[in-house]
Design a binder for these strands. Structure first.
Length: 215
DNA sequence: GCGCCGATTGGCT
DNA sequence: GCCAATCGGCGCC
């Protein structure tokens, strides 16, 4: 797999649908990066949908708009990259269209090629730790805001392609690490994959408890 | 204007 | 299991 054939990236129309459907159908697809001129390839195994103005967990909730999230309101099939906790990058693909504020967060990738590049970027050896988390996969694939934010996916340094040969089972579960609408089942994973992000259930339970206090 | 908190991660107890 | 790192937006005084 040293000299990759460039498969066609997913068409814009794929993303002109609700983030929930796009998030589900992105599981199993391939993601290829040429950031820094170095080739890396993986399979998306975990995503989350953020629905937009009526989703309390979405950066586009109530049409919120500021300098850092302008790309979230861009056209379908464009990248929205934001900084999380002041230190990590997280990558989203915009859904529906201009102004929708809805997107799919990429949460975990199964590394397929360019593992040494990923290991070098991540300073980690274990393959299960290279791309299992939204911040981790951005680091492994060389994704930064300046690299992708606001750019159309097609023709950008990071492209997502259909994988005709993949036929796994896709599970829907509650989203991770959020405190609002924490029980909406908008997280999609490849069932049984050892490359999905690991997270204890306790933080989730705490988040739910915060939203629905006892008494 | 000030303080809190998050679509996270990694290191330490 | 717990907590610090780190920073911009937002709620609140």
């Amino acid at each position: 797999m040293k000299s990759p054939r460039r498969a066609a990236p997913l068409p814009v129309g794929f993303f002109e649908r609700s983030a929930e459907i796009v998030a589900r159908e992105l599981v199993g697809t391939l993601i290829a990066s040429t950031a820094d001129g170095r080739w890396t390839l993986g399979r998306i195994v975990e995503t989350e949908a953020y629905l937009g103005y009526d989703d309390p967990a979405s950066h586009g909730y109530r049409h919120r708009r500021h300098a850092q999230n302008a790309a979230l309101y861009g056209p379908a099939a464009s990248w929205y990259v934001y900084r999380s906790y002041g230190m990590h990058w997280c990558a989203n693909l915009v859904c529906l269209g201009e102004g929708s504020g809805s997107a799919v967060l990429l949460r975990a990738v199964e590394p397929l090629d360019g593992l040494d590049v990923m290991r070098h970027r991540r300073s980690v050896e274990l393959v299960e730790s290279l791309c299992s988390g939204p911040g981790r996969l951005c680091q492994a694939l060389g994704i930064t805001r300046s690299e992708l934010d606001g750019r159309l996916m097609r023709g950008s340094p990071v492209e997502v392609m259909a994988a005709a040969d993949w036929s796994g089972v896709i599970e829907a579960t509650p989203r991770i690490g959020i405190s609002k609408a924490a029980d909406w089942p908008l997280r999609f994973t490849a069932a049984g994959s050892r490359f999905v992000s690991r997270r204890t259930v306790t933080s989730k339970l705490r988040a739910v408890a915060r939203e629905h206090p006892p008494g």
